[in-house]
Design a protein around this nucleic acid. Structure first.
Lengths: 330, 330
DNA sequence: CTGAAAGCGCTTACAG
DNA sequence: CTGAAAGCGCTTACAG
């Protein structure tokens, strides 16, 4: 491979200064239309590509963003994070940024700190927010542009999310409207903000309908298969007419348990999920769920972050739409 | 945030040259023990961290590697890629490298090309190899250090993989040894090298046992749930005594189909899988599978790649071990 | 509108 | 063993 052509080569070949070439490329600073065209044409022909590292050093910018991913997510959450990541990469590439991945385990953040110290990124996307989020706090302290996917305690943090609360309210309201009263809820890890949001939406719908919730029918932090089996069983004993699952992992386990116990859906009991991943995709009967465009979520997060990095105005909160899919299980 | 301290600051504070400070940190070049200690101590106390971008420019190195991930993998493969990626990130961080993600869709590679052009990486890990891999070819042409996870056509490519062929041979041999003869095989996408390798191992075991394979019992490219249901059904009709599944997605679908049809495992038919993900984790009865340490695979790939980048000698092929888990389904 | 020059913060022959 | 200086390839006040 022959030596890469540099801005100096271009300048010399064209008989102009490096400054001029730089301006033609960046579009910053005054420059004659003639000159600009000449330069742009030449770099097009010669396929000159500026060295991003040199640009980084001169501008103190890396054109990299980081995505923080939980190393300890369960298998059902994987498609979410992966799709988010995919969307973020696509949107970043569109603006000539790359994304580097940082895994965090619980509140441990040594990899994040390494990357921050090494100045390898211009901004960060956090893919999941938790209660008392020490990771968010760490980033905020560094003053690096930062976007959280999800809900945060700290109102100053820019965030992007699906409108889980409204979505879950709407699904629940639909169930209530269809005559159901004893609606049970099984939710996952309650330190995740998303769990809390979904729960709030559930509560909202009951409040609006002026019906009180039977606390006996609410189970949060129901992780692990055995636990879910037990919960499902006891909900039926307590006369639940419908079981709403906060995620598809839970839902698919509930459906399995019901099938094993020969309890038919929707005849004996209705089932719905607050999420719609490929886990439930081909389930028969089709499951009533909420549908969110996760790739779009990742794209939006990256796009908002880059706006932030480039000093544009961004909304503090961007809420993405959802779709309610009413199917056979309810 | 006050201005970051630079190598010049350190040099000045210590009354030495930048050269000396640089040498103390990098360990390259002669330097007095006294001086080195003094410098190291000072940067320890002041928490000086060299600017990686400047280092990059001076050395034409980025301390970034890229991991190529398929954007179109199915949900059952996700844990594999994610765990691989996690392992790679951990191993890279250990040596102060970061990893940036590139998604490719089929043979499309515009994101890869962008990253190559921008000189943002020192090397690449490809997470899955296919037949006639145009991505590999593209990278090889650029002359960038490159490690493939999996098997490649091109023998010059450095690769890291689990020993799928031996593993599948051993599992199959075990089944044969336990008296089974009509052993069926259901495999996935046959343009993936891993599918071919597993198939070869299956064949190896039959050859060794001097038993011929009934081609009627072999199904490759069996993707999609409906397809797998049909295949399962027809295999039973053809008198299969055991169904070996090449991956857990297939296996879990086969088990589901058998359950629906009230066919008991292992009484009526035996079942085994060439892979062991959390998909099958809590299945009852427990499934006979092969076990691979995927995180270790990612770690090894990153570690070999960085060796390659740093000019160390690496083995052309690194094959990682496996474990055969004989359980109740056979 | 254009350019010479300094600067970003490192590394590394070269000389001593 | 140590240092002055040039260089990596850009950007950006500043001057004209």
């Amino acid at each position: 491979m022959d030596r890469k052509i540099t801005i100096a080569d271009v300048a010399e070949a064209l008989g102009v200064s490096k400054t001029t070439v730089s301006r033609a490329i960046s579009g910053k600073g005054r420059i004659g239309e003639e000159t600009r065209k000449k330069v742009l044409e030449y770099i097009e022909v010669t396929d000159y590509k500026p060295n991003v590292i040199a640009k980084s050093l001169a501008q103190s910018k890396t054109y990299n963003i980081a995505m923080i991913l939980p190393a300890d997510c369960n298998i059902a959450e994987l498609p979410f994070f992966q799709t988010c990541m995919y969307g973020a990469c696509e949107a970043a590439a569109e603006r000539d940024y790359d994304v580097l991945t940082i895994y965090t385990l619980g509140n441990e953040s040594k990899n994040l700190e390494r990357v921050l110290i090494n100045n390898k990124i211009d901004g960060i996307i956090q893919s999941r927010t938790t209660v008392n989020d020490s990771i968010s706090a760490l980033i905020a302290k560094r003053g690096l542009p930062f976007v959280a996917i999800g809900t945060t305690d700290d109102p100053s943090i820019v965030r992007v999310d699906h409108d889980h609360r409204s979505a879950c309210r709407e699904l629940t309201a639909h169930l209530i409207a269809s005559g159901l009263r004893r609606i049970a809820l099984i939710g996952g890890n309650n330190t995740h903000m998303v769990t809390r949001n979904r729960y709030r939406g559930f509560v909202d719908a009951f409040k609006e309908a002026k019906i009180s919730i039977d606390p006996e029918l609410i189970y949060l932090n129901a992780e692990g298969n055995d636990n879910i089996d037990e919960v499902t069983h006891s909900l039926l004993v307590k006369g639940a007419e419908c079981i709403v699952c906060m995620d598809d992992m839970i839902c698919s386990r509930v459906l399995q348990k019901l099938r094993r116990d020969r309890i038919t859906v929707p005849d004996h009991v209705k089932v719905a999920s607050f999420y719609n991943s490929s886990l439930l995709e081909s389930h028969i009967p089709a499951v009533t769920t909420l549908e969110f465009d996760v790739k779009q979520l990742g794209e939006t997060a990256a796009s908002v972050l880059i706006d932030l990095i480039e000093g544009k105005d961004v909304k503090q909160t961007t809420l993405l739409p959802y779709h309610l899919k009413i199917k056979e299980t309810t």
